[in-house]
């Protein structure tokens, strides 16, 4: 399944349906760049509500987006993470860079 992109205020919401592996990560990377270039987007929200799986390719794509939002002094949020995704985030050390929120609304509120 394809990732879904949505813009709200200066937030880019990336909803990952299904499995965030190398194949999906490549698709996110290519499309996210076109959204982030030359727009006023500052923050990125990864919505994992319908994500059933993630591996190190997912870690790579999150780290890549983190570098981009940091350049714009923005923040990177992750919402609706299930236990296995939380574990990957923890083992990879990403929890130090990513702000965890319960829902998209929570993430939008936090600025």
């Amino acid at each position: 399944m394809n990732p879904v992109f949505e813009i709200r205020r200066n937030y880019l919401i990336i909803t990952v349906d299904g499995e965030l592996d190398h194949y999906m990560a490549d698709q996110i990377r290519l499309k996210a760049d076109t959204y982030l270039e030359g727009t006023r987007i500052k923050n990125v929200i990864f919505n994992f509500q319908h994500t059933t799986f993630m591996d190190s390719s997912g870690v790579g794509v999150i780290m890549g987006r983190y570098k981009q939002v940091r350049r714009m002094k923005g923040k990177l949020y992750a919402v609706h993470m299930n236990d296995s995704i939380k574990r990957i985030i923890l083992i990879s050390g990403l929890h130090k860079l990513v702000c965890e929120r319960d829902s998209i609304e929570d993430a939008l509120k936090s600025e």
Binding site: R29, D55, S56, V59, G60, M63, S92
Partner: peptide, 14 residues
């Protein structure tokens, strides 16, 4: 350049 995290083997081990 392909945004590989370098965590592959670490995950396999973990």
């Amino acid at each position: 350049e392909l945004e590989r995290s370098g965590m592959g083997f670490a995950f396999m081990e973990a």
